[in-house]
Design a protein around this nucleic acid. Structure first.
Length: 311
DNA sequence: GACCAGGCAGAAC
DNA sequence: GTTCTGCATGGT
């Protein structure tokens, strides 16, 4: 299919900015991945998006996935701007928040804890391979739904490199497979209620819950605070204050408004793309953003563990 | 070898 | 209630 773009779509930044983990850039300009768990290739061509997909993927699916449905323009028009966000918007025009499958996002972000983008991507690919449902034409496996994933043992999961997160993924699969967790329904719940439900899933804390709601459930106001975002906020908003991640997240939702999470992805990507070389001085600077956690806080106040400390 | 990576859970205080 | 620590694993 060939879709006309009414506003910019920065494919490279959108697909490889750490929100989705199964897109692969090809040498010929295509990007290979999955939308609604159907294999496809996408490429930008001037003011058009070219999509080659296996049967079953509709135009509406693609429009929704890339927010070619007007929601990106609504974000740009309605989000509260400030200097830091303007800088990120200018650096990556056309970066879009993807509307991904909530189940795959849930597993991906459980796996993401204390990991990195490359390793997360490798692990998810191996998880898909373990279940072995290969999509037509591309030779890559679809991501397993809960009833498929639940058949894997913790030992199976550990072979994918996810390490200590294996029991969390197994437990999440059991909850979803037996109906105790309805990830699709989270999109229809108020933010607070959906967030609270997710905190009941093993391996899901405040930050991961916000990622699931933002990237998989359409809660564009959810504002995950990780080490990268904490660095942005510390530098640009709280140079002299010491705040918990939960407090920062609540502040950000008020500051940026209903599209706060969309703004967060811009801030995250811009900061992460500009990350300094791994020098000793840079490491020392990063260590000043202390990362702690609290199960008690996570289950009660939904606060987080990232402290934004004075520089 | 030390440190880090889109944190979380449980123990200690 | 807050803070500290261990956790699997691979890259730098």
């Amino acid at each position: 299919m060939r879709l006309r773009l009414v506003s910019p779509l920065h494919l490279e930044a959108t697909l490889h900015s750490g929100q989705a983990f199964r897109w692969r850039p090809q040498a010929d300009g295509w990007h290979e991945g999955f939308i609604r768990n159907r294999a496809c290739r996408v490429r930008a061509d001037g003011r058009h998006l070219i999509v080659q997909a296996e049967r079953g993927l509709t135009t509406d699916d693609v429009l929704h996935y890339f927010r070619l449905d007007g929601s990106h323009e609504r974000f740009l028009a309605e989000v509260r701007r400030d200097a830091a966000l303007d800088r990120a918007l200018a650096a990556y025009p056309g970066l879009r928040l993807l509307a991904q499958d909530p189940w795959e996002v849930l597993v991906a972000y459980i796996v993401s804890a204390n990991s990195n983008v490359g390793k997360i991507a490798r692990t998810l690919e191996l998880v898909a391979n373990q279940c072995g449902v290969v999509a037509d034409g591309v030779g890559r496996a679809r991501f397993p739904m809960p009833d498929q994933l639940v058949r894997l043992t913790e030992a199976d999961l550990r072979t994918t490199g996810m390490g200590y997160r294996a029991p969390y993924v197994a437990a999440a699969a059991r909850l979803a497979a037996n109906g105790d967790l309805d990830v699709a329904a989270l999109a229809r719940l108020p933010y607070d209620e959906a967030h609270e439900q997710l905190l009941g899933v093993p391996g899901v804390g405040p930050k991961v819950a916000d990622c699931i709601l933002l990237y998989g459930c359409g809660h564009v106001g959810a504002f995950p605070v990780d080490v990268w975002v904490a660095r942005v906020l510390r530098a640009d908003y709280f140079p002299r204050k010491r705040l918990r991640a939960g407090e920062v997240g609540a502040w950000a939702r008020r500051h940026f408004g209903p599209w706060a999470g969309y703004a967060q992805h811009y801030l995250f990507h811009e900061r992460r793309s500009a990350r300094p070389p791994a020098t000793a001085a840079a490491h020392a600077a990063r260590r000043r953003v202390a990362v702690t956690s609290s199960a008690t806080r996570a289950r009660t106040t939904r606060g987080g563990g990232v402290k934004v400390t004075p520089s």
